[in-house]
Design a protein around this nucleic acid. Structure first.
Lengths: 229, 229
DNA sequence: CCCAGATCTGAACAGTGTTGAGATTGCGGT
DNA sequence: ACCGCAATCTCAACACTGTTCAGATCTGGG
């Protein structure tokens, strides 16, 4: 392979791959830029022609993996023959199982924080959830008054279980038990939402970090990113 | 203040305080052991007489903060005049609000991972949740068949929202809206649990990382900490 | 063919966690 | 009151980190 070449060819991609492998081997924080560069066979400073900093590498990797997770979720749902709620349960199961099977990478991605607004993380897991809940509302399985913002309730539940597991705050030995627990969680959440009557008039609508430009053009005012304590 | 003294007096506590302040100022990872030592007025190596490593400092700090969160939750529940579900809603509100108001420290603690089994994190947030759900089951608001493991469902939901917010994956501008979203989440989860019929016979019971010695003496076999993929 | 610009190297900088040898101190026993 | 021992802290050093920058090397388009 083009090893002795002065120009690498596709160093950017190679660094992303090496970083991902290192995360998997040594944990989300147990690796260095220099190590990834060395593994690719390149000097440490070469990386700075493709990423402005180590953090930028991490963000780029996060976006790649997040998009992969998105299509994984979609595929898991489509592989289900079930109707209605079963698809959403499959989605949650895929989400949690994915995190548990690749905990280091999951930690990195979930902790990566907000991705760039213009970044094309597609399909974003949140969007997958959103379209599925739309489907449930159309089917009538989810009453219309419970639909707005329901994706955040479901996402919080699923994400919470995944994070509790990969951070070792909760421990489940068997993989099958992880799935059972996830199914219970999603079912309970969905049933709870279905039971909702009229929402309060001022129910808040959260925003995802990967907001698209469309939403930006609507509200001109600068949206504060922090609370005033 | 004993400043020029060779022996500090209570360096361990001082380092914990300095570290917490640094986390709050510069983020969960934006500080160094050396910086904390310098702020306390002590050489970097002095810290190693109280903590085996930087990670050990972080773990110790996590346990302190986690215990503080536990009693904060208990206090928030006791401050509620409401009966039944309202107490649990107050607990969730306190959990999420606490995280959002001190995001850097919350990140550190939640990411700290499993605390030492013998560590006396008391009261642990998970235990607060557990006893409250016991109360709900006793009152009859939560059917008995839904009780086992219900704390993990509720915890996952609450924790998920908190983590999504502090990691900037979801954004809610106003603090009041955070509370409203939390209330919806807890109510929905609890209602969903209340609707549960008989559970599957082999429903898994997760374990918290802060397992107490009692549980250890029951099962003699070594409990594997990882899944086999 | 040739050279502008992208790409990579090498050496350097400040800062990090961690270690080990020695200085300083407080405390319990005589 | 003293001594010695163990706890506590300092100092200097190690290997390693992210990052910068001047210069070497390659590549594609005129």
């Amino acid at each position: 392979m083009a090893k002795a070449r002065y120009h690498h060819g596709d160093l950017r991609e190679a660094l992303l791959d090496a970083a991902e492998a290192l995360v998997r081997e040594r944990g989300a924080d147990g690796w260095s830029l220099r190590e990834a560069s060395a593994r690719v066979g390149v000097s440490p400073s070469a990386a700075y022609h493709h990423f402005g900093s180590r953090d930028e590498l991490v963000r780029a990797l996060s976006e790649v993996v997040l998009a992969r997770l998105g299509s994984h979720l979609r595929a898991a749902m489509d592989a289900t023959s079930g109707h209605g709620a079963e698809r959403l349960v499959a989605c949650g199961r895929a989400y949690v199982t994915w995190a548990v099977l690749d905990p280091a990478v999951a930690r990195l991605v979930f902790r990566g924080g907000a991705t760039e607004p213009q970044s094309a993380v597609s399909p974003h897991p949140h969007d997958v959830l959103t379209t599925e809940l739309d489907r449930l509302a159309d089917t009538g399985l989810l009453p219309p008054q419970a639909r707005p913002g329901a994706e955040f309730v479901v996402w919080a539940a699923i994400h919470g279980l995944a994070v509790l597991l990969i951070d070792d705050l909760v421990h489940i030995d068997d993989r099958r038990d992880v799935e059972l627990q996830t199914e219970r969680l999603v079912s309970a959440t969905l049933n709870g939402l279905a039971q909702e009557t009229a929402p309060p008039a001022d129910r808040p609508l959260p925003r995802t970090a990967h907001t698209q430009r469309v939403a930006q053009s609507q509200d001109a005012g600068p949206s504060p990113r922090t609370f005033s304590p």
